[in-house]
Each structure stands twice: as C-alpha cells, then as structure tokens.
Design a protein around this nucleic acid. Structure first.
Lengths: 235, 235
DNA sequence: CTCACTTTGTGCGCAAACGTACAGATATTG
DNA sequence: CAATATCTGTACGTTTGCGCACAAAGTGAG
C-alpha cells in the first residue's frame, strides 16, 4: 500500500474518478513530500512530472523583465500541476513554487499521457479543471489591475487557508510581496492594517486567521467568484 | 464557392490543417461579417458558435465589479474564439467584443464538437493554440501589473496592427480605456505622448502607425514575448 | 552569550494613475 | 445650416504604490 501511516487528505480531482480509473492512476503514481520554497519548474523548462497535491500547495508565477513576478494561479488538493502536458506541450511558461509543505501524488510525463489516453473520465475531469484554472487566471488579471493591495492580500490568505485546510500557515511579507507583485513594504502596511482590524495575527511568518468572515469582507469579490466557478464545474 | 470576390485572408489555424480536414471543416462553416463593437458573447452566456477570424479581430474581456473591465486576450486570423467548447464547457467566463470589422468562419457548437472528434489534426492544432492563448493571458496579467499605460498602449496598437494587417485602423480613446482598464484621460495622455514622438497619429478614432520600430521600442517586451511564444508553437 | 541573519516597522520624497469637471473641436443628422 | 452627439485636450486635487534607507526586534548557530 502506497498510502502512509496517517491517511493523507486526498486530491479532489482523483477522488472524482470512477473507482477503476482511480486505482489504476494511483498505482502508477508515487507519493512525494514537497517543502516550502521548493521550485518544481522554471519557465522555459520541460515539465517532467505532473503533481496532484493532497495537502501541499503550489503557486504558479509569471515572471517578467527578469525582476518582477506575479502569481497567476494557486494549486492545492482541488487541482493539479502540469496542464501543458494535456495540451501536447512539454514546456512550462510559468514557475512552480511550493507555498505550503505537504505531500502530492506525482507521475512522470510519459505515464501521464498514457493514462490520459486510457481514461476518458480523467480527461473529462482535467479538461474541466483546465477551464476553471483559466477562468481564475483571467479573474486574477482583472483583480490585480483594479483592487488594492489590502484586498488582494486578504483574498490570498483565504485562498491559502482553503488549500492547506488550516487557519495557520507560514509565509513571510517578502514572499507575499513576491506573489502579489508589490513591494515588501506594501505588504507590511496592508498586513498591519488587517492585524489592527483583528482579522489576522502574524509574527515572523507565522500567520493566523482570526476572523474568516471579516477577512472575506475585507477581500475583493474575486475570492467568492473563484470558488463559485470551481463549484459550478467540479463541485 | 463560399469564398467571395476578393480572396479573404485565411485563418492560420485552418490553413495549417491537412487538406482533407480543412475542406471538410470549411464546408461545415459559414462566412460571417463582424462589425466593430459587436458583442459576440456575454460572460455567463452559452457559447453558440466558434469563430475563426480571417480579417476581423475580437477582444476577450474580463469584467469585474460590474464596472471595470480588462482585455485578457486578442484574437485575429492567427487564432480562434470558443475555446471552452474544446474543454467540454458551454459557458464563457469572458465577454467577446469585435475590435476590428471583417469576416470570420463560423461553426455552431454541436458541429464543432463533431469536427473535433473527427479530426485529430484539428485537435492537436487547437490544443497548441489553447496553450499559447493561456501563456499570453499569464503574460498580460503580469504586464498589466508592472508596465505603464504608455507602454501597454504601444503594445496594444502593435498587436492590433498585426491582426488587421494594416497600419491604419479605428479605435477611440474611450475604447482603449476600456480594454486597457484605465481612465479615458489616461489614454489621451499616453496617446498624445506617442504622437509627440511621431510614432503614431490619430484623429477621432482613426489611428495610424507612423513608425513601427519606434513603437516597438516604446512598448514593453511583452509584445515580442507573445510573438515568440506563438511562433515557437504554431509558426 | 554573542554574532549574524531574518523579519518587520517607519519615514521620507516621488511617480503614476484616479475621479471629476469642463471646454473646444470635429462629425453627423434633421 | 443648425442642433446634437462624439471625440479629444486640459486642469486640479487625491490616492495608491514605488524606491530607498534605516531601525528595531526576534531567531538560530557556534
């Protein structure tokens, strides 16, 4: 049995598969542990594995001008990593960075392509997921354009919470600045504001969400919109 | 013969198909004329047709907060409209607005799905295009976050030029403000600056690119990056 | 314990873009 | 030709975020 001592949280996409397909799929996976700040792929590099996180979280970052970067997607146990392989493309245009430590199912690219051929159910499911991810990407683009840092920060914290399934997690201002594409000082200001409002607390990277409802109110509608999109197509 | 008096520019995705597939595909299409500002689809609505522009140009817009909107994709004869149907989804999350008058091949959703089944070559081609479009979306997201209005405007004008295959076209400051997600006054300022530099001229919506090379220099690298991505995968 | 490092807070001046309002210029239409 | 609508230019104060620099507080390794 590949599954370890403590039964890990499962991956939603795999859980939704018909029993046989799921068994076959998982038999060809290996379980791997991902650590925070691990880089799973650099832009321009070939994608060697697909990942189905169970309790890890991975951030998709677009880099521009060699300096700046911006998160354009966030993947936890509701999703998967390695979409381009579904489209017959080997190369990633994005950087994959682990934002939350934990485990994931991993499968090498060739095996994955065979599995896709074999299981129409898997293909259907992943196509829908690809649609959701793209919709969220478009939503993020607009969000980044129109919403202030404090609201975007609130949204991001909620998104992470949903994916690590906990109100506490680790992330420094510096990293937040990186994913939101703003200055570190901009995060400090926004985070201080959220803390003053008793919505969160944090110290040296240890973030705790104190008031989820309040944080939702402080975030932009994009958080809810994303969740709705996912629910509608894969819920 | 469906093709009209003046042989229209063809659609690159269709041209790349094997002869038989292309013939079969086009026989099941109709040629339609699209007029500027036509809205082909509203967010949340079902997608009834796919479009393969020949000399028309369509803008993909993400709306947010009911007021603001932002272009996240631009489709000319190098692309197609109606991606979600490839993924088994009927609903668009974006608004489709015609930015350049002209014609396009149109096919209804059901026929399109059958055509996809029938032609693996078509599927392969469109999968690659989907990858390109997604990469460009991610690029745009970062671009909108980091680059100033003047550079983004320059980029957009070049993108339109490439898709209408002409240095002259029609677009008002108001519309530009809409697609770039800024104030109309912001466009006036940026456009005036480009005009002072003798890169473009315009009057009441009639834009003319005077110095393409200069305009590229004034735009951000994103313009070239997008072109490279397309070339690499579909060139 | 000490030293080096990481993380967070604060304080400037500056640039880009915002919201709003109004005026002039150019088409279009009756 | 007159009336109306569209398009562009300008102006003014405000907000958000940037770049930079430095200080303070917490953490961990030797």
């Amino acid at each position: 049995m590949l599954v370890s001592k403590s039964m890990p949280a499962q991956n939603s996409l795999l859980v939704a598969l018909p029993y046989d397909d799921r068994q076959h799929f998982i038999e060809h996976c290996e379980q791997v542990e991902l650590s925070i700040n691990d880089i799973l792929c650099e832009p321009g590099e070939p994608i060697r594995y697909v990942y189905f996180p169970t309790d890890s979280v991975i951030s998709l970052l677009a880099r521009v001008d060699d300096h700046s970067s911006l998160e354009v997607g966030l993947v936890g146990n509701e999703g998967m990593l390695g979409i381009p392989l579904m489209l017959g493309v080997e190369v990633s245009s994005l950087q994959f960075v682990v934002q939350g430590s934990g485990s994931a199912w991993r499968m090498d690219a060739t095996t994955f392509r065979r599995a896709l051929q074999r299981s129409p159910g898997l293909k259907l499911e992943l196509n829908r997921y690809l649609y959701v991810l793209t919709s969220q990407l478009a939503q993020s683009a607009a969000c980044n354009r129109f919403h202030v840092v404090e609201a975007r920060l609130a949204r991001w914290l909620l998104m992470i919470r949903d994916r690590v399934h906990s109100d506490q997690f680790h992330v420094t201002h510096q990293v937040l600045a990186y994913v939101l594409g703003v200055r570190r000082v901009g995060i400090t200001k926004a985070a201080s504001s959220l803390q003053r409002k008793k919505l969160i607390s944090y110290s040296r990277g240890n973030v705790k969400i104190l008031d989820g409802k309040g944080l939702e109110a402080a975030s932009c509608r994009c958080y809810q919109t994303d969740k709705d999109t996912y629910e509608r197509l894969l819920g």
